Amino acid sequence: MKNPLFYAKILLFGEYGIIENSKGLTIPYNFYQGALKFELTPESASSNESLRKYAQFLSENFSDQFNTESFIEDVKNGMYFDSNIPQGYGVGSSGALVAAIYNKYSKDKIDIQADLTKDKIAELKLIFGKMESYFHGKSSGIDPLICYMNIPLLIQSKDDISTVGLPAASIDGKGAVFLINSGEPGETAPMVQIFFEKLKGEGFRKTLKEEFIKYNNACIDYFVKGEYNPLFANLQKLSSWAFEHFRPMIPQKLVDAWKTGIDTDTYYLKLCGSGGGGYVLGFTQDYEKAKTHLKDFNTEVIYRF
């Protein structure tokens, strides 16, 4: 393909926890996508300028790993990132861009069609973390990794990532995983900064380890197995914990809706990415019933069961 597409991603479980070595589960989301293209127009000018700055960053820091001269030349010739992935919504807009740049300009590209080992996946994650640090100050590399590989990934720890199969979706299932649009973008760096400030408190570190990570890991185990009753029992605890301890990260417009889900046991919300704005994730065993409580918001189903 001349312009390979790179899709958005959704981190179903593991936001913030993976920084502290919890499990994570991430899936591609093909509704949004981006590709590198050549055609300088007034609409593409800002993307082209962003790429110029990014090419400079790679040139100054990673010229041994990337064909940065070719990258810089392509930007001069009008290259931009044509993407409908919303920025600041927690679905991997910078991850898809980083994956596209790696794919086109890496000097020693790791072939994902070949027999991928855990070591190769870990190597890719490390490279992507360094590349994406330009956008967020600090990056785990997970977002570009999922955008690049375009298959579900199970994160056992920061050094142990593997592909994973998910239960087959049911098109007409009552249950659903869905996105809710908060109506405004969020910024990753300030949210991550809040998290690191919280980590300085011994009480927060303790509850993160003993409660949040425990519920998070249980949700992943049950979701992958398709065991929905224990999944939702743990989702209720996870959503309640986040409501208490991640309140600054919950978009203001969704605070009441978040609590309503917990109070009615109709649906449970959790962060999608770093929070502060963008999307949040919803889980329900009865999507039509959940929608009655969420009629003031735009919801988007990503998985039915």
Rank of each mutant, 00 (worst) to 15 (best):
V280G: 02
E227R: 10
N150R: 05
I194S: 13
D82M: 10
M149C: 13
E211V: 00
L231E: 03
V280N: 05
F232R: 10
G88L: 01
A168F: 10
D159Q: 13
K107P: 07
E184D: 14
V280P: 00
A99L: 07
F6I: 01
F57R: 10
K120S: 13
E132Y: 01
L281M: 08
K253C: 01
L12M: 03
V75G: 08
E211Q: 09
G88S: 00
G78F: 06
E39C: 11
T264D: 04
D256M: 05
C272R: 02
Y148A: 08
I101D: 04
S170Y: 06
K214D: 13
K206E: 15
F135R: 08
N30S: 14
I127N: 03
Y287P: 05
G34I: 09
S140I: 12
Y303M: 10
N150Q: 12
D263S: 12
L166P: 08
D74Q: 07
E244I: 09
S46F: 04
L235P: 00
N217R: 01
K9C: 00
F223Y: 14
Q56G: 12
L294N: 09
I18L: 11
L271W: 03
I161Q: 02
D221I: 08
G17F: 09
S83F: 06
A122M: 03
D115E: 14
Q285A: 03
D256G: 00
P167Q: 15
A233M: 11
G137M: 12
I171W: 00
K206L: 13
P4F: 05
L271N: 03
K76A: 12
I194V: 15
K295N: 14
Y303E: 06
L179A: 14
P251H: 02
I10T: 00
Y29K: 06
G175N: 10
A8Y: 09
Q113F: 13
F223T: 01
L254Y: 05
R52C: 04
N67E: 14
L271D: 02
